[in-house]
Design a protein around this nucleic acid. Structure first.
Lengths: 147, 147
DNA sequence: TCGTGTGTTGAGAACGATTCTCATTCTCGA
DNA sequence: TCGAGAATGAGAATCGTTCTCAACACACGA
């Protein structure tokens, strides 16, 4: 489990190199933003501010980072994509999604539940001929301020 | 649990009336397509064919049906939306999503797992100040033909 | 150190799913 | 039958995302 900021950058660099990519300033900036955010970030949020990476570069580099397995695209009901650091760089977790305002928070479920759930899902996937690579579990509701 | 085709239409009509909407021929056609599909349908699939509902009407009516709680927008990684009938009209289930080709299949998980999972999630949501929580659990993997 | 080839950048154009506009048509109740 | 409001559908507009391409930067060999 890599948690320190420096360690994350080191891991990211390694993964990029493995697929023949450089760890440029723009990419570092994006990763920094995701580390700082501590949760899924909307692309729009990455495009504002003085030091923002230009739009086309941001999109391109987010794709590169995604392909390198550094970040993950979070599927939402909203109009735009959100990204977060890969679970190897943080921790396995799930999301609390507000169905009204779209706010997303991270949550973890107890390891015991996680384990038994994982076993069940593996069996199901196998039965359906799917090679299971993971699961996505989101809680949908109304957050405190929208309720 | 409503399962017969006629029953579904009756339920749909009721829900639409409850929010002051009519059950028009276009809407009925969309619901029929969703019943026949037996799983999440991409909007594109609803726009082809001789009897297809025109694009603008399809989008408008899918929104109406969604607001009336008749259908549900399925969140995917793909480029376009998919819809399925509300769970009240079918059964509570989850999805097997192929991360490569985007194919989606329905799966159910054992009731016992579902129950204990539900309890756990309720507790988590409550702790985070989230109200009225449902969950979304998808299995991500590679389907037989993509593996 | 100086090329040189290859990867990266960024501004703007292009793309495509979705939403909006508006004139026409339909439906339901009076 | 009439009238008001709802629904329709063709096309325009919107907007997140991807593509294009000329300028630039870095790694590496001479």
């Amino acid at each position: 489990m890599t948690t320190g900021r420096g360690e994350v950058h080191q891991t990211v660099e390694g993964r990029l190199h493995r697929v023949g990519q450089r760890y440029t300033a723009n990419r570092r900036a994006l990763v920094d933003a995701l580390i700082a955010a501590r949760g899924p970030v909307a692309i729009g949020d990455l495009l504002v501010g003085k030091r923002a990476v230009p739009q086309s570069s941001a999109y391109r580099n987010l794709s590169v980072l995604e392909e390198a397995g550094v970040i993950r695209r979070v599927i939402t009901a909203g109009d735009f994509a959100r990204f977060e650091l890969d679970e190897d760089l943080t921790e396995h977790h799930h999301h609390l999604v507000c169905s009204n305002c779209g706010r997303i928070e991270d949550v973890e479920i107890p390891a015991s539940v996680e384990r038994s759930l994982g076993r069940t899902l593996d069996r199901l996937a196998e039965g359906a001929g799917f090679a299971s690579v993971g699961h996505r579990l989101d809680l949908i509701g109304r957050c405190r301020s929208c309720a």
